[in-house]
Design a protein around this nucleic acid. Sequence first.
DNA 1: TGATGACTGTGACCTAAATCACAAACATCA
DNA 2: TGATGTTTGTGATTTAGGTCACAGTCATCA
Lengths: 195, 195
Amino acid sequence: MSNFQAFFDYIQEISGKLLSEDDKHLLMAHFRPKKLRKRQYFLQEGDVCKYIGFVIKGSARTFTVDEKGNEHILKLSLENWWLADFESFYLLTPSRFNIEALEDLELLQATNAQIEEFLKNIPAFSKMASVISQNYTIANQKRMQAAMNYTAEERYEDLINNYPHFLKRFPQNMIASYLGLSRETLSRIRKNSFK
Amino acid sequence: MSNFQAFFDYIQEISGKLLSEDDKHLLMAHFRPKKLRKRQYFLQEGDVCKYIGFVIKGSARTFTVDEKGNEHILKLSLENWWLADFESFYLLTPSRFNIEALEDLELLQATNAQIEEFLKNIPAFSKMASVISQNYTIANQKRMQAAMNYTAEERYEDLINNYPHFLKRFPQNMIASYLGLSRETLSRIRKNSFK
DNA sequence: TGATGACTGTGACCTAAATCACAAACATCA
DNA sequence: TGATGTTTGTGATTTAGGTCACAGTCATCA
């Protein structure tokens, strides 16, 4: 199935290792394709995040709703990103987050128990997992620093430099929320920044 | 050596697995004890973070200095925490961070190549690494959300709830910087919050 | 085609937190 | 013991960014 080809390519590229035919069959036997239409939820607040999803096509946002009803986007995800509330996924606690498709979404999903199997039995998969874990740690470190110490403008410039494609794929109000800004402030920053 | 006992206990507790005598000898052969006096640096901005340190005793802060000369604390570390700029440690790039002992510090340190060996050869060690990586991911997720969406008061309350011992071990100006606040603001929050 | 809902821009105003400045409390060490 | 550095408190002032309100633009779909 062509869905899986992109996934296999991704694993091999990130890990620098090849998947055997057996590896591929094991992955295909357990990762389940899933489609969501725009606005559908992959995860709802209060539910346990039973599945982790790998984005084949489309985009999604991970967000919370505060007591005043304001939404705060924690993560925006595109092709080749993993989708989960890791706290809930690892600990099986009810999630504080919602994950919603922003465009029609094609995923491959699996449970934590299945992931553990892949880690044990597929060297390329477990190498990929440790590389990703490193990348996440690095990205988190950077983003924390930006969130705490940078001004609104600096955070926006950072986004332009690091994730320029976000600007093409996501509307401004989503970007603003992701940066921890009001949409009005982002609009003004954009006005001032060029020209 | 008694330094190592605490370290072995830690690995066994986190991983839920026992270390064999061989495992222990391997760790003792490669993890090097290191002492730093208060104010000494474990890592200086611009240097590559060659070593990861495990804190046996004492405390440290990881911070940056911005163009105006202001310091921003990204991480405060105590006993049984790992000390490193992971970006620099994994990628061998020059670090943007400084790591400085806040109290006299006893560490066990190792290089990335040595860590890779332990991961390969010591099951308890690699299980510990994956548990820690999960915990980091969860903690980062929470802290990001707090940094972006919470007010100064809420962030301080969060700290009281999650890391009450920080208040005993670190001076207020360090706590303020860690929370991304000015020391004046933290002082006022404390004044208002009780009584 | 027009109508409804989503997204963006812009002004007026407000507020949380930073900055500046000075003083008090506390530690450390010769 | 006093002297010097470190940490904390508190007032006055400033500022980045939020909030509110309304208008304009754009897309979608019947």
